[in-house]
């Protein structure tokens, strides 16, 4: 990761933006046209979030902003000031995998893995969203913004089912 934070802005329009990512705050000097995805990957070294289509069609760049899954390729970093951003690097807590991460491992819910971080971020948001029903059809619909070109959908659904039942077993509110 290159750190240009001490360098004077190259562009007269450069902005100073404070991003809160996985609980840590980062002060960055950014051009206004930098999207959150590129700020995460290229400026903060958080490369778990992937760039797939770069147009909001594939979901590989999914992160949480204030608890909701969004496409980080379509969100300007400058618009995220003061928001709580969570990336796949922030899913695990205290050294323990998030139930969704463990379930993806257990259910073999990936092949090449490129879409996996986005899939897991959507799945984690889905489990926390009480507005979405828990039929297979509703889960598939809620996950349809995440493409998997290897076609691991069947196991992804199984992983979400596993994480959901574990959350319920722990008395969680997912």
């Amino acid at each position: 990761m290159m750190d240009h934070s001490d360098a004077p802005p190259q562009d007269a329009d450069a902005l100073t933006v404070t991003l809160t990512v996985n609980g840590e705050t980062h002060r960055l000097t950014l051009a206004p046209n930098v999207v959150l995805l590129d700020a995460l990957r290229d400026r903060l070294g958080l490369t778990g979030t992937k760039k797939g289509c770069d147009h909001g069609q594939c979901g590989a760049c999914t992160v949480h902003v204030d608890g909701r899954a969004i496409n980080s390729c379509l969100r300007l970093a400058a618009m995220c000031e003061g928001r709580a951003i969570t990336t796949v690097e922030g899913l695990a807590r205290d050294g323990a995998l998030h139930p969704v991460q463990q379930a993806f491992l257990d259910q073999d819910a990936y092949q090449c893995g490129f879409c996996t971080s986005g899939q897991m971020m959507s799945a984690a948001a889905l489990l926390d969203d009480g507005r979405i029903g828990d039929s297979d059809a509703e889960i598939r619909e809620a996950m349809s913004g995440n493409l998997c070109r290897c076609g691991a959908y069947k196991n992804i659904l199984a992983a979400i089912r596993q994480a959901e039942s574990e959350a319920r077993g722990r008395g969680g509110d997912a």
């Binding site: 899954a69 969100r75 889905l126 809620a142 913004g145």
Partner: peptide, 12 residues
């Protein structure tokens, strides 16, 4: 609304 786009797009 729910027939359109994806969860992420609808959230944005």
């Amino acid at each position: 609304i729910l027939a359109g786009a994806s969860t992420q797009i609808r959230n944005m």
